[in-house]
């Protein structure tokens, strides 16, 4: 299956990209998605423990299951406001 992974803020900057369509085996969970991203972009490892995750605009956890065309957000600590 293919999932759409989105990167933001300092993570997007560290990886040098904002989005990527990732091919994963069926039955994969978000943890597998993160493992694959970390394999492709080792800079992600420095962020992994601090990431908050979203799946189709809902909060998600590493053990959340994935489905075809899911949108997965990798969100570093937020800093809205002034």
């Amino acid at each position: 299956m293919r999932v759409h992974v989105l990167f933001f803020g300092p993570v997007a900057e560290a990886l040098g990209l904002r989005e990527h369509w990732l091919e994963l085996p069926s039955g994969a969970r978000i943890a597998d998605c993160l493992d694959e991203c970390q394999r492709r972009w080792p800079a992600l490892s420095a962020w992994r423990s601090r990431l908050h995750l979203s799946r189709n605009l809902e909060s998600a956890a590493e053990d959340s299951p994935l489905a075809e065309a899911d949108e997965i957000g990798l969100l570093p600590p937020v800093s809205g406001g002034a």
């Binding site: 803020g9 570093p76 937020v78 809205g80 406001g81």
Partner: peptide
Amino acid sequence: IDALKRGAAIWKK
């Protein structure tokens, strides 16, 4: 404002 700063998916550089 507290909740927005704490949780909204917004990043500042």
